[in-house]
Protein backbone atom coordinates (compact mmCIF):
# COMPACT_ATOMS: atom_id res chain seq x y z
CA UNK A 1 0.00 0.00 0.00
CA UNK A 2 1.22 3.48 -0.79
CA UNK A 3 2.20 5.26 2.37
CA UNK A 4 3.88 8.45 3.47
CA UNK A 5 3.43 11.59 1.41
CA UNK A 6 1.73 9.53 -1.30
CA UNK A 7 -0.78 8.02 1.12
CA UNK A 8 -4.50 8.05 0.22
CA UNK A 9 -5.50 10.86 2.61
CA UNK A 10 -2.62 13.19 1.80
CA UNK A 11 -2.67 15.96 -0.79
CA UNK A 12 -2.08 14.29 -4.16
CA UNK A 13 1.34 15.52 -5.24
CA UNK A 14 3.52 13.29 -7.39
CA UNK A 15 6.90 14.73 -6.45
CA UNK A 16 8.74 13.36 -3.41
CA UNK A 17 9.73 16.93 -2.66
CA UNK A 18 8.99 20.31 -4.20
CA UNK A 19 12.19 21.85 -2.85
CA UNK A 20 13.95 23.61 -5.73
CA UNK A 21 17.19 24.18 -3.80
CA UNK A 22 20.22 21.87 -3.84
CA UNK A 23 19.04 19.90 -0.81
CA UNK A 24 21.18 16.94 -1.88
CA UNK A 25 24.45 18.83 -1.50
CA UNK A 26 24.91 18.67 2.33
CA UNK A 27 24.22 14.90 2.57
CA UNK A 28 26.42 14.24 -0.46
CA UNK A 29 29.25 16.26 1.09
CA UNK A 30 28.87 14.37 4.35
CA UNK A 31 28.86 11.07 2.48
CA UNK A 32 32.03 11.87 0.54
CA UNK A 33 33.98 13.31 3.48
CA UNK A 34 32.99 10.61 5.97
CA UNK A 35 33.71 7.87 3.44
CA UNK A 36 37.12 9.38 2.70
CA UNK A 37 37.88 9.55 6.42
CA UNK A 38 36.77 5.96 6.99
CA UNK A 39 38.95 4.72 4.14
CA UNK A 40 41.95 6.73 5.34
CA UNK A 41 41.50 5.74 8.99
CA UNK A 42 41.04 2.06 8.11
CA UNK A 43 44.17 1.97 5.99
CA UNK A 44 46.20 3.75 8.67
CA UNK A 45 44.79 1.64 11.50
CA UNK A 46 45.69 -1.62 9.79
CA UNK A 47 49.05 -0.38 8.54
CA UNK A 48 50.75 -0.84 11.91
CA UNK A 49 53.78 1.24 10.91
CA UNK A 50 54.93 4.86 10.50
CA UNK A 51 52.94 6.09 13.48
CA UNK A 52 55.80 7.34 15.62
CA UNK A 53 58.32 10.01 14.69
CA UNK A 54 60.08 11.04 17.86
CA UNK A 55 58.74 12.90 19.78
CA UNK A 56 55.37 12.66 17.98
CA UNK A 57 52.93 9.79 18.36
CA UNK A 58 49.96 9.55 15.99
CA UNK A 59 46.57 10.00 17.73
CA UNK A 60 45.37 6.83 15.94
CA UNK A 61 47.91 4.83 17.93
CA UNK A 62 47.77 6.57 21.30
CA UNK A 63 48.10 5.02 23.82
CA UNK A 64 50.25 2.45 22.05
CA UNK A 65 49.54 -0.67 24.07
CA UNK A 66 50.56 -3.41 21.62
CA UNK A 67 53.91 -4.39 20.20
CA UNK A 68 54.86 -0.82 19.33
CA UNK A 69 58.11 0.73 18.13
CA UNK A 70 60.58 1.96 20.73
CA UNK A 71 59.58 5.23 22.40
CA UNK A 72 55.91 5.02 21.37
CA UNK A 73 54.57 3.23 24.44
CA UNK A 74 54.32 5.70 27.31
CA UNK A 75 51.86 3.48 29.15
CA UNK A 76 53.64 0.15 28.71
CA UNK A 77 52.75 -2.69 26.37
CA UNK A 78 50.19 -4.84 28.21
CA UNK A 79 48.93 -6.25 24.88
CA UNK A 80 52.35 -7.03 23.46
CA UNK A 81 51.10 -10.42 22.28
CA UNK A 82 48.39 -8.78 20.12
CA UNK A 83 49.28 -9.87 16.59
CA UNK A 84 47.59 -7.05 14.69
CA UNK A 85 48.11 -3.29 14.57
CA UNK A 86 48.14 -1.58 17.98
CA UNK A 87 45.67 1.00 16.68
CA UNK A 88 42.94 -1.63 16.55
CA UNK A 89 43.17 -2.03 20.33
CA UNK A 90 42.15 1.53 21.12
CA UNK A 91 40.38 2.97 18.06
CA UNK A 92 37.12 1.31 19.09
CA UNK A 93 36.73 3.97 21.79
CA UNK A 94 36.98 7.15 19.69
CA UNK A 95 35.18 5.33 16.88
CA UNK A 96 32.36 4.25 19.20
CA UNK A 97 32.15 7.76 20.64
CA UNK A 98 31.69 9.27 17.22
CA UNK A 99 29.41 6.55 15.88
CA UNK A 100 26.98 7.00 18.77
CA UNK A 101 27.36 10.80 18.92
CA UNK A 102 24.07 12.65 18.57
CA UNK A 103 25.53 14.96 15.92
CA UNK A 104 27.11 12.19 13.83
CA UNK A 105 23.91 10.19 14.04
CA UNK A 106 22.06 13.05 12.41
CA UNK A 107 24.77 13.37 9.77
CA UNK A 108 25.01 9.71 8.81
CA UNK A 109 21.30 8.92 9.10
CA UNK A 110 20.81 11.62 6.50
CA UNK A 111 23.81 10.93 4.28
CA UNK A 112 24.10 7.13 4.42
CA UNK A 113 20.65 5.90 5.49
CA UNK A 114 18.75 8.64 3.60
CA UNK A 115 16.41 8.63 6.55
CA UNK A 116 15.55 11.31 5.54
CA UNK A 117 18.09 12.61 2.99
CA UNK A 118 17.00 16.18 3.79
CA UNK A 119 14.11 17.88 5.54
CA UNK A 120 10.77 17.47 3.73
CA UNK A 121 12.36 15.12 1.20
CA UNK A 122 10.68 11.71 1.25
CA UNK A 123 12.91 8.84 2.28
CA UNK A 124 13.16 5.81 -0.01
CA UNK A 125 12.54 3.12 2.64
CA UNK A 126 9.02 1.82 3.18
CA UNK A 127 9.43 0.80 6.83
CA UNK A 128 11.03 2.56 9.75
CA UNK A 129 11.56 1.66 13.40
CA UNK A 130 14.12 4.28 14.40
CA UNK A 131 16.31 3.46 17.35
CA UNK A 132 13.86 1.14 19.04
CA UNK A 133 15.51 -2.17 18.08
CA UNK A 134 18.89 -3.85 18.05
CA UNK A 135 21.41 -2.80 16.75
CA UNK A 136 20.39 0.88 16.78
CA UNK A 137 19.13 0.48 20.33
CA UNK A 138 22.82 0.40 21.23
CA UNK A 139 23.05 4.12 20.46
CA UNK A 140 21.92 4.50 24.07
CA UNK A 141 25.40 3.45 25.19
CA UNK A 142 26.79 6.83 24.10
CA UNK A 143 27.57 8.01 27.63
CA UNK A 144 29.93 5.08 28.22
CA UNK A 145 31.87 5.99 25.10
CA UNK A 146 31.96 9.53 26.42
CA UNK A 147 33.59 8.32 29.63
CA UNK A 148 36.19 6.54 27.47
CA UNK A 149 36.60 9.65 25.30
CA UNK A 150 37.55 11.67 28.37
CA UNK A 151 40.35 9.18 29.08
CA UNK A 152 41.46 9.31 25.45
CA UNK A 153 41.46 13.11 25.67
CA UNK A 154 43.73 12.95 28.72
CA UNK A 155 46.13 10.60 26.94
CA UNK A 156 46.25 12.84 23.85
CA UNK A 157 46.89 15.85 26.11
CA UNK A 158 49.82 13.96 27.65
CA UNK A 159 51.12 13.29 24.12
CA UNK A 160 51.05 17.02 23.41
CA UNK A 161 53.12 17.70 26.52
CA UNK A 162 55.65 15.10 25.35
CA UNK A 163 55.72 16.80 21.96
CA UNK A 164 57.39 19.83 23.52
CA UNK A 165 60.65 17.94 23.23
CA UNK A 166 63.09 17.40 20.40
CA UNK A 167 64.00 14.14 18.69
CA UNK A 168 66.40 13.28 21.52
CA UNK A 169 63.68 13.86 24.12
CA UNK A 170 65.18 17.08 25.48
CA UNK A 171 62.54 19.45 26.84
CA UNK A 172 61.76 22.99 25.73
CA UNK A 173 61.47 22.44 21.99
CA UNK A 174 58.66 22.79 19.55
CA UNK A 175 57.94 21.98 15.93
CA UNK A 176 55.08 22.18 13.48
CA UNK A 177 54.01 18.74 14.69
CA UNK A 178 53.69 20.09 18.25
CA UNK A 179 51.50 22.92 17.01
CA UNK A 180 49.28 20.58 15.00
CA UNK A 181 48.94 18.22 17.95
CA UNK A 182 48.12 21.13 20.25
CA UNK A 183 45.40 22.41 17.92
CA UNK A 184 44.09 18.88 17.54
CA UNK A 185 43.84 18.25 21.27
CA UNK A 186 42.04 21.56 21.83
CA UNK A 187 39.50 20.59 19.16
CA UNK A 188 39.18 17.08 20.61
CA UNK A 189 38.45 18.57 24.04
CA UNK A 190 35.95 21.03 22.61
CA UNK A 191 34.22 18.13 20.87
CA UNK A 192 34.32 15.91 23.96
CA UNK A 193 33.14 18.54 26.42
CA UNK A 194 30.36 19.80 24.15
CA UNK A 195 28.85 16.30 24.01
CA UNK A 196 25.15 15.96 24.81
CA UNK A 197 25.88 13.15 27.28
CA UNK A 198 28.40 15.39 29.02
CA UNK A 199 25.75 18.10 29.22
CA UNK A 200 23.34 15.61 30.76
CA UNK A 201 25.88 14.24 33.19
CA UNK A 202 27.17 17.54 34.56
CA UNK A 203 23.73 18.96 35.28
CA UNK A 204 21.12 18.28 32.63
CA UNK A 205 19.70 15.33 34.51
CA UNK A 206 18.85 17.43 37.58
CA UNK A 207 15.28 18.48 38.28
CA UNK A 208 16.21 21.42 40.53
CA UNK A 209 18.98 23.65 39.22
CA UNK A 210 18.41 25.89 42.23
CA UNK A 211 19.56 23.17 44.64
CA UNK A 212 22.82 22.58 42.75
CA UNK A 213 24.36 25.96 41.82
CA UNK A 214 27.81 24.59 40.91
CA UNK A 215 26.42 21.93 38.61
CA UNK A 216 24.03 24.48 37.13
CA UNK A 217 27.01 26.70 36.33
CA UNK A 218 28.83 23.76 34.71
CA UNK A 219 25.70 22.93 32.75
CA UNK A 220 25.47 26.48 31.39
CA UNK A 221 29.11 26.29 30.24
CA UNK A 222 28.64 22.92 28.57
CA UNK A 223 25.36 24.14 27.05
CA UNK A 224 27.22 27.03 25.44
CA UNK A 225 29.79 24.63 23.95
CA UNK A 226 27.03 22.22 22.98
CA UNK A 227 25.56 24.72 20.52
CA UNK A 228 28.62 24.16 18.31
CA UNK A 229 28.97 20.44 18.89
CA UNK A 230 28.51 19.65 15.19
CA UNK A 231 31.17 22.15 14.18
CA UNK A 232 33.66 20.69 16.66
CA UNK A 233 32.81 17.21 15.38
CA UNK A 234 33.92 18.21 11.88
CA UNK A 235 36.96 20.25 12.92
CA UNK A 236 38.30 17.52 15.20
CA UNK A 237 37.74 14.91 12.50
CA UNK A 238 39.92 16.89 10.12
CA UNK A 239 42.54 17.74 12.73
CA UNK A 240 43.03 14.17 13.91
CA UNK A 241 43.50 12.97 10.32
CA UNK A 242 45.86 15.85 9.56
CA UNK A 243 48.05 15.13 12.61
CA UNK A 244 48.22 11.46 11.71
CA UNK A 245 49.10 12.29 8.10
CA UNK A 246 51.84 14.70 9.19
CA UNK A 247 53.41 12.12 11.51
CA UNK A 248 53.03 9.42 8.85
CA UNK A 249 54.90 11.55 6.32
CA UNK A 250 57.71 12.31 8.78
CA UNK A 251 57.95 8.70 9.93
CA UNK A 252 58.30 7.31 6.42
CA UNK A 253 60.82 9.98 5.48
CA UNK A 254 58.71 11.83 2.90
CA UNK A 255 59.07 15.17 4.68
CA UNK A 256 61.08 16.58 7.58
CA UNK A 257 59.53 18.12 10.65
CA UNK A 258 59.62 21.92 10.72
CA UNK A 259 61.32 22.77 14.01
CA UNK A 260 60.51 26.17 15.56
CA UNK A 261 63.02 26.00 18.45
Amino acid sequence: MTTGVHGPTRAAIDEKTLRPDRWWLPPLTTFVVFSAFVVYATVRAFMGSDYYASPYLSPFYSPCLGDCVEGASDFGQPFRAWPLSAALLILIFPLGFRMTCYYYRKAYYRAFWLSPPACAVAEPKTTYTGETRFPLLLQNVHRYFWYAAVLVGLVLSFDVVLAFRNEDHEWGHMGLGTLLMLVNVVLIWLYTLSCHSCRHTVGGRLRHFSKHPVRYKLWTWVSRLNQDHGRYAWYSLFSVALVDLYIFLIANGTIEDVRFF
Binding site: Y102, Y109, E131
Partner: peptide
Protein backbone atom coordinates in the same frame (compact mmCIF):
# COMPACT_ATOMS: atom_id res chain seq x y z
CA UNK B 1 5.12 8.32 22.92
CA UNK B 2 7.72 6.48 20.86
CA UNK B 3 10.75 8.62 21.66
CA UNK B 4 12.98 5.78 20.46
CA UNK B 5 11.62 6.21 16.95
CA UNK B 6 13.23 9.62 16.70
CA UNK B 7 16.60 9.44 14.98
CA UNK B 8 17.44 13.05 15.83
CA UNK B 9 17.86 14.27 12.27
CA UNK B 10 16.87 17.73 13.52
CA UNK B 11 14.35 18.74 10.86
CA UNK B 12 11.95 19.76 13.63
CA UNK B 13 14.50 22.26 14.88
CA UNK B 14 15.16 23.53 11.35
CA UNK B 15 11.52 24.40 10.68
Amino acid sequence: AGLGMCNITKCCTEV
